[in-house]
Amino acid sequence: MPSNKTCPLVEQYLGYLAVIKGRSENTVNEYRTDLLMFSAL
């Protein structure tokens, strides 16, 4: 999963979603986008 200026904790969470929760790559990418937008506020 490529990082796009996210912190390591966020990347760990996204990895958890993919590996443990079995979320699709598209879902994880959407979560990343949402978290980046939220952190920019």
Rank of each mutant, 00 (worst) to 15 (best):
S24D: 09
A18L: 04
E30K: 08
E25R: 08
N29E: 13
N4R: 13
C7I: 04
E30L: 09
P8A: 12
R23F: 02
N4H: 08
V28G: 02
L14N: 01
G15I: 00
L17K: 06
R23Q: 06
Y31P: 00
C7S: 09
Q12T: 09
Y13M: 07
T6W: 01
S24P: 07
A40P: 07
L9N: 04
E11W: 00
M1H: 11
N29P: 00
K5T: 07
K5R: 13
G22S: 05
D34Q: 11
T27D: 03
L41G: 09
E30A: 07
T27H: 10
E11N: 12
M1G: 14
C7K: 06
S39A: 14
Y13N: 02
F38V: 08
P2H: 09
L9T: 06
Y13W: 05
K5F: 07
S39P: 03
G22V: 05
T6C: 09
N26A: 13
S39V: 10
Y31D: 01
M37C: 11
S3K: 10
L14M: 04
Y16K: 06
A18P: 01
S39C: 13
L36A: 09
G22C: 04
S24F: 06
E25N: 09
A40R: 15
S24N: 08
R32H: 03
Y16R: 05
S39M: 13
I20N: 14
G22E: 06
M37Y: 13
Y13P: 03
K5N: 14
G22L: 04
E30M: 08
V19M: 08
M37K: 15
E25Q: 11
R32W: 03
M37P: 01
P2N: 11
S3W: 01
D34L: 13
E11L: 03
M1R: 09
P8L: 07
E11K: 03
L9G: 01
V19D: 15
